[in-house]
Amino acid sequence: MRYLRYLLIPLACCAGGLAIVFGLQGLEAAWITLVLLLLEISLSFDNAVVNARVLDQLSPGQQRFFLTWGLVIPVFGVRFAGPLVMVSLAGGVGMGEALEAALRQPARYRALLELAEPRILAFGGMFLLMVFLRYFFDEAKTLHWVRPLERRLSAAGRIEALEVALALSLLLILAAMLPAELRAEVMISGVIGLVLQLLSTSLAQAFGDEEQAGARLAAGGGLVSLLYLELLDASFSLDGTIGAFAITQNLGLILTGLGLGALFIRSLTLMLSREKALDQLVYLEHGAHYAIGSLGLLMLSGIVLAQHHLHLPEWVTGLIGIVLLLLSLADSLRQRGFPRHSR
């Protein structure tokens, strides 16, 4: 029950936001917004984990500065501007024009989305798939949730760049299943998503492991601390922004759902840091990454399904991630009483 006090304000804001969406657009829109909100929370959990671990190494003044101002750019900037930028770039129009179409010209915005959809799905699907693969293809990983699978994936991590080869192979197979006029743009978009994920992760790892990074932050302070945390936080924030397109193409609902979900990041960071909750809820990060991998595969498969005029219902897509998160939470709670080496 002590965890609940950290979440009271975000819960109240979410309840108010969902009520407004329900009143303006109906039950289906409110449900989609709720799915986006829960998806954002699940995908942002690894973000909160890293923030909490780094915060433990900072001085109280640095912690307050980051929690009040340091989250503004990645949390709200990436999540609010991200979807609009994707549509703008893929559709070949200015951001103002894309926003105008989204808010006042639904038919034109729908046409822009149809043009942009294969590129958005390829970019996002590959980005999310790489997040999933790089988390589990790690030979140093010793804590496993789905042990038979994760032990094999961890052992396979000894082969350098195997996850990159697997992701690119999947992208080649996907492109071969598409009409000739779509292959080049899907390949290019997918490779860009893969490279961006590799680059963002590699830049963050250049600061060293978590203990080294924390020591550097505490020693450097000021601008160095903020720049590192902004880089790390923004790279994690991109997951939820991309994954939202697997749920819905309604920009208003995306902005609302991700915005409400983002309110939980600060509260989760505080809770994890002050209550040491990660020592008990050990599988939540696993569940979040399974959700990320599932969304990535669904986004990639959605490109092929669209060629046959098929579409997976949005609520099914979102429900998969929610179920995975709840299962990992349940297993974490069951394992709390056992010593760490028995897991």
Results as ranks from 00 to 15, higher is better:
residue 319 L to H: 10
residue 246 A to L: 07
residue 316 V to G: 05
residue 239 D to A: 14
residue 228 Y to H: 09
residue 288 A to K: 00
residue 274 R to M: 10
residue 318 G to V: 06
residue 242 I to G: 07
residue 322 I to S: 01
residue 259 G to Q: 00
residue 226 L to P: 10
residue 229 L to D: 03
residue 223 L to R: 14
residue 229 L to K: 12
residue 286 H to P: 00
residue 320 I to N: 07
residue 258 L to E: 03
residue 219 A to S: 09
residue 277 A to T: 13
residue 319 L to G: 07
residue 285 E to K: 08
residue 274 R to G: 11
residue 240 G to P: 07
residue 262 A to C: 05
residue 220 G to S: 12
residue 290 Y to Q: 09
residue 260 L to N: 01
residue 253 L to F: 09
residue 289 H to S: 05
residue 271 M to F: 14
residue 313 P to I: 02
residue 231 L to W: 12
residue 223 L to C: 07
residue 320 I to S: 10
residue 231 L to M: 10
residue 240 G to F: 04
residue 261 G to F: 07
residue 294 S to C: 15
residue 310 L to H: 08
residue 320 I to G: 09
residue 323 V to T: 12
residue 272 L to E: 14
residue 302 G to D: 08
residue 240 G to V: 02
residue 233 D to K: 13
residue 226 L to S: 15
residue 299 M to S: 01
residue 298 L to D: 03
residue 301 S to M: 09
residue 293 G to N: 02
residue 283 Y to L: 11
residue 323 V to C: 06
residue 252 G to E: 02
residue 239 D to G: 12
residue 321 G to K: 01
residue 216 R to Q: 12
residue 232 L to S: 14
residue 270 L to Q: 15
residue 313 P to A: 03
residue 230 E to Y: 12
residue 279 D to M: 11
residue 267 S to F: 04
residue 236 F to G: 02
residue 240 G to E: 00
residue 287 G to D: 00
residue 259 G to F: 01
residue 264 F to N: 00
residue 219 A to D: 11
residue 313 P to M: 05
residue 229 L to F: 11
residue 242 I to L: 15
residue 309 H to F: 09
residue 263 L to R: 02
residue 216 R to I: 04
residue 240 G to D: 05
residue 255 L to G: 03
residue 248 T to M: 08
residue 249 Q to E: 12
